[in-house]
Computed example of a mutant assay.
Amino acid sequence: MQENNISYVRTSFADPQKPPAGQSGPVYWLRTNLFATPADALFTFLGLAFVAYFVPQIISWALINAVWTGPDRTACLTAAQGGMQPDGWSGACWAFVEAKFGQFIFGRYPLEERWRPILVGIMLVALLVPLMMPRVPRKGLNALLLFIVFPVVSFYLLVGGAFGLQHVRTDSWGGLLVTLVLSFVAMSVSLPLGIILALGRRSNMPIIKLISVIFIETVRGVPLVTVLFMASIMLPLFLPAGTNFDKFLRALIGVSLFASAYMAEVIRGGLQAIPKGQFEGADSLGLTYWQKMILIILPQAIKLVIPGIVNSFIGLFKDTSLVYIIAMFDLLGVVRQNFSDANWATPQTPTSGLVFAGIIFWLFCFGMSRYSIFMEERLNTGHKR
């Protein structure tokens, strides 16, 4: 038998070597990512041409030629129109946004009471940010404060009428305040309710399954505008005489139920993606139905459908602007309402207001999107060793 030869076995790692010439650096990156094929090069040049043509015009309109302050509409009118700007001027009228900023954020909420929604916003950030940071401890206590204590405190702060606070009717709310309240409540309600509906749709109990299917398919079969109209206009007609409740609460319920139906289908997709062996393994351990779902199945299903959940949240955040049809003014509604102010009626006012609203919506939606990507990467343990 031939003896093993170990004379070539290393006892230490080899020193790292530099990458081959032409396999690193900015030129290699450009060649690999932007000019790898003729089609890539063509699209790269088209993209650069698009940027070169439009970006300078956008910068000129939004920054260089923009009007940042002014007493009234004359600040954003040309001399021929009776204003302060030279003839041929074209730029953003941020003076309109600056003058109406308080209304864009709070609506007609009383000026002397605006410290209350500001305090609610500070509390929301103080509780939400630690909950979103994985390394911060005491997640259970944080979630309890955010989803149980915070809504109660926020209700008394925003509505008032107790503890010496002035009562503020919800029809005085508006702007970003309405957008955030509607979004936060609807997201907080739609996720757990959607999970229950998804489990009900997959249930072996015929009555539970039938109720879940009817609710999901009925709500998904009509637009949100119809749901809001029914909740605001038609629902009071079916209530006993003299019975009425706040229109804002009706909108909250309508939006939450609408979002929960879509969320149920997202969760159901995650449940169907779980291998059958996971269910059988949980049954073999003698777990009850709810123990199996809470401890084994749902954590895996929710992890799989994080993109779908966040996509639903983003769509819900933008759909809050539809409450405009029932005479409630969210951020976009307040911006549009102020277009009719004769003191600020200029050709540049609508564009500037809509761009401002678009930037706010984009910031929130982009933030949710980036955080979902972070959570996907953190929870993506399926192929790690």
Rank of each mutant, 00 (worst) to 15 (best):
K139R: 12
V67A: 03
F50M: 15
Y156E: 04
R138I: 12
P137F: 05
A126K: 10
F163W: 15
R73K: 12
L131T: 05
P110M: 03
V55M: 13
T74F: 15
V120S: 07
N142G: 10
I148Q: 10
D72V: 05
V67I: 03
L141I: 14
A95D: 05
K139T: 11
F54N: 08
L141G: 11
W94F: 14
G83C: 03
M133R: 15
M84K: 14
Y109M: 00
L48S: 12
A49S: 05
R114V: 01
P130L: 06
N65H: 14
G140C: 12
F147M: 10
A62T: 12
G70N: 03
G70A: 10
L158N: 02
R135H: 13
R116K: 08
G83R: 00
I118G: 00
V97I: 14
G88Q: 15
G47H: 09
G161I: 01
A92S: 14
Q81L: 15
I122P: 11
R73W: 08
D87E: 05
R116E: 00
A36N: 10
E112H: 05
I118E: 04
G82Y: 01
V125F: 12
F43Y: 13
N142I: 11
D72W: 05
R138N: 10
L124E: 00
W115L: 01
P134T: 08
G107E: 01
G160D: 03
G161S: 03
T37L: 05
M84F: 13
P117F: 00
L63K: 10
Q57D: 03
V159D: 01
M123G: 00
A126T: 07
A99S: 06
P151L: 11
G140V: 09
C93K: 03
F54S: 04
G121S: 03
L48M: 14
M132F: 10
W94M: 03
G161P: 00
I105P: 02
L48R: 07
R114H: 01
P134E: 07
A143I: 13
L77K: 03
E98Q: 13
V159R: 04
F50Y: 15
C76I: 02
T37E: 01
Y53H: 04
C93Y: 05
G47K: 07
T37A: 04
P38Y: 08
L124K: 01
A143K: 15
